[in-house]
Simulated assay, not measured.
Amino acid sequence: MNGGRAGLFYGGGFTQLGVQAISVLACGIFAFVAAYVLLLITKGITGGLRVSEEEKLWVLI
């Protein structure tokens, strides 16, 4: 199931833990970059990420 590699608690040492830690970091970096790119695209299409004061007041009326 794990390709014959022993885990941290089954005699594999920290090798598998290191691989998993790198995988978690890679996923976190990917998620951050993807969210940032989508934010920039949204900002470019709409011209900003906040509504104007006029639009805020219109909703309150």
Rank of each mutant, 00 (worst) to 15 (best):
Arg5Val: 12
Phe30His: 03
Gly7Asp: 08
Met1Arg: 07
Phe14Leu: 06
Phe9Asp: 08
Val33Glu: 11
Val19Asp: 11
Trp58Lys: 14
Leu25Met: 10
Val33Ile: 15
Gly3Ala: 08
Gly12Phe: 01
Val51Trp: 05
Lys56Met: 14
Asn2Val: 06
Leu25His: 03
Ile22Asp: 01
Leu60Glu: 14
Gly12Met: 01
Phe32Ser: 07
Leu60Asp: 15
Gly28His: 00
Leu17Ser: 13
Phe14Ala: 14
Val37Pro: 00
Glu54Asn: 14
Thr46Leu: 13
Gly48Ile: 02
Leu49Pro: 01
Thr42Trp: 04
Ala34Trp: 09
Gly3Asp: 06
Phe9Arg: 07
Val59Phe: 06
Asn2Tyr: 07
Asn2Ile: 07
Gly18Trp: 02
Leu25Tyr: 04
Leu40Ala: 09
Leu17Met: 12
Gln16Gly: 01
Lys56Ser: 13
Val59Lys: 08
Ile45Arg: 08
Ala35Ile: 13
Gly44Gln: 12
Leu40Thr: 13
Ala34Arg: 09
Glu53Asp: 14
Val51Pro: 02
Gly13Pro: 01
Ala21Asp: 07
Ile41Arg: 07
Gly48Gln: 01
Ile22His: 00
Val33Leu: 14
Thr15Phe: 07
Asn2Gln: 07
Ala31Phe: 08
Ala26Phe: 02
Lys56Gln: 13
Gly11Arg: 02
Leu39Asp: 15
Tyr10Ser: 13
Val33Met: 14
Gly13Lys: 02
Ala6His: 05
Gly47Leu: 02
Phe9Gly: 04
Val24Ser: 15
Val24Glu: 15
Ala21Ser: 14
Phe32Tyr: 10
Gly11Trp: 00
Cys27Trp: 05
Leu17Phe: 06
Phe9Thr: 13
Ile61Thr: 05
Phe30Thr: 04
Glu54Val: 14
Gly47Phe: 02
Gly11Asp: 04
Ala26Lys: 04
